[in-house]
Design a protein around this nucleic acid. Structure first.
Lengths: 368, 368
DNA sequence: CTTGGCACTCTCAACCCGAGAGTGCCAAAG
DNA sequence: CTTTGGCACTCTCGGGTTGAGAGTGCCAAG
């Protein structure tokens, strides 16, 4: 478990350096990171030997710290202040120093229990996942719904509503449901003699369902021409819906626990979080993560300036994909200050991602 | 326009007091409120005459301020600091001192234009509304989808998905769509000889659609018995879905612009916003507003401690309902420090509420 | 290589102090 | 009777100072 790698973003450099470190340096670095994560205060040599029983004197620790600083793993706010881990220091810690434990059985059971209480079909469970992540890691959590890479026609329903409008409700192959009102004025121009009553709609829906099953947008467009009257017209809307679904990778983002981050001393001054929140709002940020996460599954850790996005230079992300393989993909993870409890956050994200994988596939598969 | 009343929450008291105020007192109160809202700094007599050309000396203003303070309309952080409006002072200002203008034609056109760019059927337009509210008032905005008070059966579709599960997609009378997976194991126990293929599902759906149109949950339950086999079983799920829809008044809440509040000096220290965010997360808070808003339409202003909820003692809410009358109801509004630009926020909320009313009804009614 | 000693640096909290803004009161003026 | 200028008083806030404390780097001895 301890040897797991968390997708270093900058080639193999940090690992090579890790191998060059002496045991003492490794021990000191680990102690510095853990102390700083805990106290949020730059840590000095004396305090360190006091709290961690390193078996050496402060002077020795000092020289080790100086070496670590030369390697770029620690940094100095100013002379005569303690040391603070750099992004690279955290990276090394995460990669090879951290003692990572799986979640307790108790935690796991509790989480599992909470999931058993909610319907899996609506979005309530995503909200729940975000809430659990946020609470358990005391960071901000982000969860996106699982979507398939390529939208396929599943089943369609055409409904005449009380209010006179006509609704297309399209079930995609992955079970997601999308909808759209028909532009009746346009239809009426095209098919002036149609009654557009429920009977006719049912008829058209039947035709669509028998002809379009399993097709993606382009095929739907191609087949549309061969369909009769109303069905042909509606097929255009269906194709549009499919294309829309294809184009949006990340649609609804569920976040929770932003206050947790606000309470961290580094973000006590509320406006410091502004850029982060702004970026989080724009869903294209999460879309950038998609290729990274799908390339290799598992938990990814992005620390501070490793993130190409300027707004994220002060925070770390811990993300994982989830979903049924090759069918639907979602994202979940947490966001917090670089001074984050990685040994807690990483297993939590990992557990939730595997749990949600399991729920999704067992749910899909339960009757097969 | 200026004489509009914004639903005083505590009987007629403030209004009676308002009538007792002298012209001078009213002028001074207005100036204090407007200056404080603008500068966020307690305002003194000298500064006031300097900035507002009141035509009297600071001494006179001082005595007026002392009177206003005795009436509970202003308050004093400490001796020898300027005055700050109390909640009651803001209330009076909002009720009868404020010069409220409608939104410019330009703003209105821009907003309208933005709405013309998005599909009305998906939730994108609610997000847009929240974004416009937040941007235009520099406060946090909250928008909830319009839901009908009582859910009715509209049309149902039963789908066999690729993955072997069976999905119920129910279109409600108000056009909202809800969905649920069928518990196939249970069904199989009940109806061991059913194939549950798409053909059978279509058959059952047809029966349901012809029998249940327009009914609410209890009637659906009652009629379920008379339906054949599979349809009867599914009717139970449909009734459950309807009941679920009835029980949740406020489901998805779209918020935007929380950073705007974080940037106000009174909330610069991020954790001060914690209680507010926590309450906002819990949807039951918004549900409390529903009866108030429906009792009398229009814009409601709740200032600081007028709010019965402790967490909201430092903020003001400006809310309005929207929706098709007697059919669907949603909420929208803004939240900010009590030191809020009421003359801007109130018209904005009002305009957005009427605009969304209009969009919803014209959309519903366009083909009738 | 480790360690104790030592001189040095820098922050931080506490304190003081004066400037500035504001108040309340009062007596004189309108 | 209201308004106003004057005046004494209060309180905050920013700046400057200072001493304690923590931490560092270096060096020579163990």
């Amino acid at each position: 478990m301890t040897s797991q790698r968390h997708s270093p973003r900058q080639g193999g450099a940090p690992i090579r350096q890790a191998l060059e470190l002496t045991d003492r340096q490794r021990t000191v670095l680990r102690a510095v990171v853990e102390d700083y994560v805990f106290t949020a205060v730059p840590v000095g040599s004396k305090a360190l030997v006091g709290r961690y029983a390193l078996g050496v004197s402060p002077a020795t620790v000092r020289s080790a710290m100086a070496e670590l600083e030369a390697l770029g793993l620690l940094s100095h706010p100013h002379t005569s202040a303690g040391r603070v881990p750099s992004d690279l220091g955290y990276r090394l810690y995460v990669e090879s120093l951290m003692r990572e434990a799986e979640l307790d059985q108790a935690d796991r059971l509790m989480i599992r229990h909470q999931f058993s209480q909610v319907q899996l079909t609506n979005n309530e469970w995503l909200r729940l996942a975000a809430s659990i992540l946020a609470g358990s890691t005391r960071s901000a959590a982000v969860v996106t719904p699982a979507r398939s890479r390529r939208a396929h026609f599943g089943h369609v329903q055409l409904v005449a509503l009380d209010d006179g409008t006509r609704l297309v409700v399209l079930v995609l192959g992955d079970g997601n449901v999308v909808q759209r009102h028909l532009d009746r004025a346009a239809l009426q121009r095209e098919l002036p003699d149609s009654p557009f009553d429920q009977a006719e709609l049912d008829h058209a829906a039947a035709a669509l369902n028998s002809e379009l099953g399993g097709f993606a947008a382009p095929q739907v467009r191609r087949r549309a021409a061969r369909l009769p009257r109303l069905a042909a017209a509606v097929a255009g809307d269906i194709a549009a819906l499919l294309e829309e679904a294809d184009s949006v990778v990340v649609e609804d983002v569920f976040t929770d626990g932003i206050v947790n981050v606000l309470e961290q001393p580094e973000f006590a001054e509320g406006s410091r979080l502004r850029p982060v929140l702004e970026v989080l709002q724009r869903s294209d940020f999460l879309e950038q993560l998609v290729p990274v996460l799908t390339r290799s599954g598992g938990v990814h850790v992005i620390i501070g300036r490793e993130n190409s996005n300027d707004a994220m230079h002060e925070v770390s992300l811990i993300f994982a994909p989830y979903g049924a393989p090759d069918r639907a993909l979602g994202l979940l993870g947490v966001l917090g200050p670089t001074r984050m409890r990685y040994p807690r956050a990483i297993p939590t994200v990992r557990y939730l991602s595997t749990l949600m994988n399991e729920l999704i596939t067992s749910h899909y598969g339960e009757t097969q």
